[in-house]
């Protein structure tokens, strides 16, 4: 089996996974003993109005009929309408997902740029001060709760020092750019609004750092352990005994081979970052997918929950596929098929 066939097979398997996710989500959302219409209308709405809307939204139909309708609409590219926002869900997702992608990507860049060097230093200076520093730093990253670290950083850098801006995707004196791609950074540049672009980046620093901190920690730990493993190998000793410079030994011979587990971690981290981070988004008033889906869950907006879950499953599967493909580029011994 060649590379193309491998990718094709993986994509087919992905479809099965997605169907499974959709089915499970549908069943789970519909067995909850609560009425979405009642939830959205609140305690004061008269029963007659609830009944009328339940009928209009099709919630009074048999479960299997609702499921078939949902799948049929899905196959036609129709994700349905949200009972909470009263809009097509595709519009909601197109509005929220770019914000999540921007934040996740920025977080991952910070995590990778800091995590990998930290892991390398830690491995090369095992049990020395840099290693201890790196391990404690990683421990903080993994164990510090976001709601604490986020608020403390805001308190220090925004409230006290005023070095960084207030929560939110941009300052109050800016208006969002005309929507072209949905990404504020790109759209502001398209609109020629460099001030907004820079302001948006500035607003992204703290949430990206907070969100990336735990990923950074896991990347650093994984890099350290896999580097330690590789640095013990005979071919590294051979390289050193040949008189190669340490830099060449570490970067050319050790790092590339140590990257496979790290790449896996990076891929998985990116996948989970793209799910949206409710706490980070709430603390930094970031309009991402996390707060959207949390609101949808609280208001029993099944259609929105199912569509968001589908999107997350798709994103996660794609991240995994990309990681698997990257293995072959990093290690020529890996062949597909």
């Amino acid at each position: 089996m060649n590379f193309r066939a491998y990718v094709f097979r993986r994509l087919l398997l992905m479809l099965i996974v997605l169907f499974g996710v959709v089915s499970i989500t549908f069943v789970v959302s519909h067995v909850i003993p609560a009425d979405p219409i009642g939830a959205i209308l609140g305690p004061k709405a008269p029963d007659e109005v609830i009944e009328k809307l339940r009928h209009e939204w099709g919630f009074d139909r048999p479960l299997h009929e609702q499921f078939v309708n949902y799948i049929w609409n899905l196959l036609h590219g129709n994700l349905g309408k949200s009972i909470r926002t009263n809009r097509p869900i595709i519009l909601d997702l197109m509005e929220r997902f770019p914000d999540t992608i921007e934040l996740s990507t920025a977080s991952l860049i910070i995590a990778v740029c800091v995590g990998i060097p930290l892991g390398i230093v830690s491995a090369c200076r095992k049990d020395k001060i840099p290693d201890h520093f790196s391990r404690v730093f990683s421990l903080f990253g993994i164990s510090l709760p976001v709601f604490w670290s986020g608020l403390i950083l805001l308190m220090v850098f925004y409230y006290r020092l005023n070095w960084l801006p207030s929560p939110g995707p941009y300052s109050t004196y800016f208006r969002p750019p005309p929507v072209v791609t949905g990404f504020i950074s790109i759209d502001s540049l398209i609109a020629g609004n460099v001030g907004l672009f820079l302001n948006h980046l500035e607003h992204m620093i703290l949430p990206a750092f907070v969100l990336g901190f735990s990923s950074m920690a896991s990347i650093a730990r994984m890099t350290r352990s896999s580097m330690l493993e590789v640095l013990r190998q005979d071919y590294i000793k051979a390289a050193r005994s040949k008189g190669l410079k340490e830099r060449a030994v570490v970067f050319k011979h050790a790092l590339r081979n140590a990257m496979i587990p790290t790449i896996t971690i990076i891929g998985l981290n990116y996948g989970s970052l793209l799910e949206g981070a409710v706490l980070t988004e709430t603390i930094f008033a970031w309009p991402g997918l996390g707060t959207y889906v949390t609101g949808a869950i609280l208001y029993l907006d099944f259609q929105a929950v199912m569509s968001t879950t589908l999107l997350i499953a798709l994103t996660y599967s794609l991240c995994n596929l990309i990681v698997d493909i990257l293995y072959a580029f990093l290690d020529p011994r890996i062949k597909y098929g």
Binding site: I110, Y173, G195, L196, E202
Partner: peptide, 18 residues
Amino acid sequence: VGAAIGYVAHVPPEAPEA
């Protein structure tokens, strides 16, 4: 780098399209 972006961006915009 992050802090630098912040510092640069922190300078109030001269003519934002507001």
